[in-house]
Amino acid sequence: MRPDSRRIAVLITDGESQDKVLLPSKNLKHNDIEVYAIGVQGARESELKVIASDNDHVYFLKDFKSLNGIIRNITIDLSKGSNNLGK
């Protein structure tokens, strides 16, 4: 990976985690990995907020068909962030 590139993870889930999410989430953030959390139907919003880098990176959808509706928002967010590299 290029040193100046953004490191991004996107989690898409439709249920509650069977594992503990706090420590792995902290590790990702500690390693400068920007995390987006997308929950569908049965996902727990509180877990998504723990996993995501911040609340602007949390999406909650009623079904998987709704993913198309947020792709533009995520793409815009990712392109904005890439302009801030090295600043």
Rank of each mutant, 00 (worst) to 15 (best):
K20V: 05
K80G: 02
K49D: 08
T13V: 06
L11G: 00
D32F: 02
S82P: 00
G42A: 15
K26N: 13
K62A: 05
D77Q: 13
L23I: 06
I12E: 11
N31M: 13
L78I: 14
S25H: 07
E47L: 04
R44W: 09
V35H: 09
F60P: 01
E16M: 09
P24G: 03
F60S: 08
G15P: 04
T75F: 08
L61A: 02
N55I: 08
S79I: 04
A43W: 13
L61P: 04
D14M: 12
N83D: 10
G39H: 11
V35N: 06
A43D: 12
F64N: 05
K80T: 01
V21R: 01
F64W: 12
K87S: 10
D19C: 06
G15S: 07
E16V: 15
R44M: 13
A52W: 09
G81H: 06
A37R: 11
D19G: 09
L67K: 10
K62M: 03
N84G: 05
D56E: 12
D63H: 09
K65A: 08
K87T: 10
Q41A: 15
Q18H: 13
L48E: 07
G42R: 15
G86R: 01
G69T: 14
R2Y: 04
D32M: 02
G81R: 14
N83G: 07
I74C: 00
G86W: 00
D77V: 01
R44P: 02
F60L: 11
K26M: 13
